[in-house]
Nucleic acid binder design. Sequence first.
DNA 1: GCGATCAGCT
DNA 2: CACAGCTGATCGC
Length: 601
Amino acid sequence: MSSFAGRMKEYPNISLDCFDRDNLHARAYFLSHCHKDHMRGIKGPKLKRRLRSSSRVKLYCSPVSKELLLSSRKHLFWEQYIVPLELESPTQISLVDEASGESEELVVTLLPAGHCPGSVMFLFEGRRGNVLYTGDFRLALGDVARMEHLHSGGRVKDIQSVYVDSTFFDPRFYQIPSRETCVSAIVRLVGDWIARSALHVVWLNCKAAYGYEYLFTRLGQEFNTRVHVDNLLMFRRMPEILSYVTCERRTQIHACRHRKSQQYVHGNRLPCACGTGADLRVLSIKPSTMWFGERTHASDVVIKSGNDAFRACFSFHSSYCEVKDFLSYLQPVQVFPNVVPMGSTLAEVTRMLRMTCRKRPRDDLAYKPLGLLKRRRRLATLTTAPPDADPDSDDDLFDGLAAALPKKLPRTSRHHPDAPRAAPQATPHTAPHATPEENSLWLVARDRSDINNFMDCTESNDDDDSEEDEQSDRDQTKWLGQRGSPCGEPPKWEDFFTVDSQNNLNGQRQARRPFSPALSGPSSEREDDDDDVADFSLSLSASDHSWQKRDASEADEPPPSSQSSSDFDVACTPDSKRPTPEQLARLYRKLADGDDLSCPD
DNA sequence: GCGATCAGCT
DNA sequence: CACAGCTGATCGC
């Protein structure tokens, strides 16, 4: 749950995801997505008065969030104040103080966040630096490198602060199975069950208002059916979702809810069939977050939790590993947590986030040639040499550090804070479906952040407290220990998927109840919502939604890598090229021999 | 009567 | 495996 108070220190005249208290005086509002914990005060009477007395204040959000927000009558008063912004379209905004007339210019860009329909991150660029507010997000490893608007001139933008979704920024939540793995597991579980008979139905015990839609659409596609939900109104302009959900109860897949859902399902009845004695076999699936430690061998993605009941892994938020990847890539000057992870403290999460930051302000650090490490600077695909570096000087070698590094570890220079930071070019960090060879190179590329992390931790010894040193040591061990993969050995989530239909789904027959015709009667009080949809068509962009249907041409592509939790079609970094197999083979030979990698072939 | 806040629950 | 959100009790205006 977000505990972000609404304002960023760089731009205190705007408020994000919070609409009460001090935020009542904001010159502009931003809504990252339509979950209630990001809408505090959004329908408050004080805010309504403020809006009525202002001619300039607006609410900026994605077009999908606008639809979702306005689908509730309580929020209709916002309609004239909402400015929907397309994703990845930088927009200049004037923040005007209506009393004094003073104005501040700001450029905002919405980036896909992968949390729920319409969810976005906000990148602000203005006089006080570039600041990224992530809202809630689930991005896979490497996604950040493919976001064009976080780069400029082929380099990562200089980010002053990131206000980050730290829900799972705790090593306990080190890895969470990818979105694709989880959905595939649920699809298989559902398929095994509903194939048994027309009376075998599935109930998805979903909690949040939005976020499960890509699961519904995937199930709808797989089984050529629709998922029964309570209300369609909010999706009326979203045909990609709408065509896979229904208010008609006569379907085998349900995500309907009822105040006493749990007890009805225990009685082998669906929430929508409460009070009837339908002779159904209901399989209950509760999507819930499952996580695995750094060295944990991930177990099942679905777990049997009772008679005809399963929990299935599902996460709206990035894992520790994914958040760390995100921040290590951006290297902001500061990071602030939006959430205190369960069982942690604000101080603890803040301390851990600091380790992903640049260690010194860009203006304060005089560049030190990195000696032994500097040669890696010439590995053009991975790093860019600082402009003032002398490539032939062997002064100021990090001898001690070099000795501490494993001999065969691929080495790279640390980014000079003033140096341009290269966006990945040929790094398969950006390749969603890498071959084994490409994957290996990707691991090399990943080692850049791993080693930077090592360097950062090592260098922090002289200016950080001893407690932090201990943590740094632990992190060094962790990151070096898992070399070969961004998160240890690449987990093959597919291998851990062990829904054994024979063992798990058989042999739990319960006494059947008399079938009730109620299920085939009028489907719902709101069933005619189905008719409301024809005259709208709000297109969901591919980069905005993971449930976007894939082209037929993509059907034969290999499955995404194990940690690619996001299914977004984020554009590749401009000008990137894939290395040829020959180039890769040469590179691996050199790596294996510990050779200098910088010499061109 | 309404809103804010919190505990309890799922 | 812990997210997101509903319900009900309590308090203040």
